[in-house]
Simulated assay, not measured.
Amino acid sequence: MSLKPAVSNTDHAQGNLNADLVIVEYGDYQCPYCGAAYPVLKELMNQFGSQIKFVFRNFPLSEMHQYARAAALAAEAAALQHKFWEMHDAIYENQRSLNEHLLLELAKELKLDIPQFKSDLEGSELKAKIDEDFESGVVSGVNGTPSFYVNGKKFEGGAEDLFHLVGADIK
Rank of each mutant, 00 (worst) to 15 (best):
V139E: 13
E156W: 00
S2Y: 13
E156Y: 11
V166A: 10
K83M: 08
S8L: 03
D113P: 02
M87T: 01
E105C: 00
E160P: 00
C34D: 05
G167T: 05
Y38V: 06
F117A: 10
Q66S: 09
Q51T: 02
E156K: 09
P115E: 03
Q14H: 00
D20A: 14
A128I: 12
F155N: 10
A19L: 09
V24W: 06
P39C: 11
R57V: 07
E125S: 14
S119Y: 11
G15R: 09
S2L: 06
I23L: 08
S62I: 13
N58E: 11
V55C: 04
M87A: 06
V24D: 04
V55A: 08
A168Y: 09
F84M: 04
W85C: 11
L98D: 07
E76N: 13
K108I: 08
Y29P: 05
V139W: 03
L98I: 06
P115V: 12
F59T: 02
F59R: 03
Q95T: 06
A74W: 08
V40W: 07
R57L: 09
A19N: 10
A90P: 04
V55R: 07
S140A: 09
Q66D: 05
M64K: 11
K127F: 02
F54Q: 05
Q95Y: 03
I23P: 05
D11Y: 06
W85S: 05
D131G: 10
H164Q: 14
D20N: 15
C34Q: 09
P60I: 02
M45N: 08
K154M: 13
W85K: 06
P146D: 08
E93Y: 03
L3V: 09
A68Y: 03
L98T: 02
L73C: 10
P146Y: 07
N143D: 13
L61D: 03
F56V: 02
A36F: 08
V138Q: 15
V22L: 02
L41P: 06
M64P: 00
G158I: 04
A13E: 13
I114D: 08
A79F: 05
Y92D: 01
S136I: 02
G123M: 13
R57F: 10
A107H: 08
P146R: 05
G35T: 10
P60T: 01
G167R: 09
Q51I: 03
L103F: 01
C31I: 09
C31D: 14
L165A: 04
E135K: 14
A72P: 07
I52R: 10
A19F: 05
E135N: 13
D161H: 12
G27T: 03
E125D: 14
V7L: 11
E93D: 13
E86P: 00
R96S: 15
G15W: 10
W85L: 04
I52E: 11
P39I: 11
E156A: 11
R69H: 14
M64L: 15
L126D: 12
A107F: 07
K83D: 08
E100L: 00
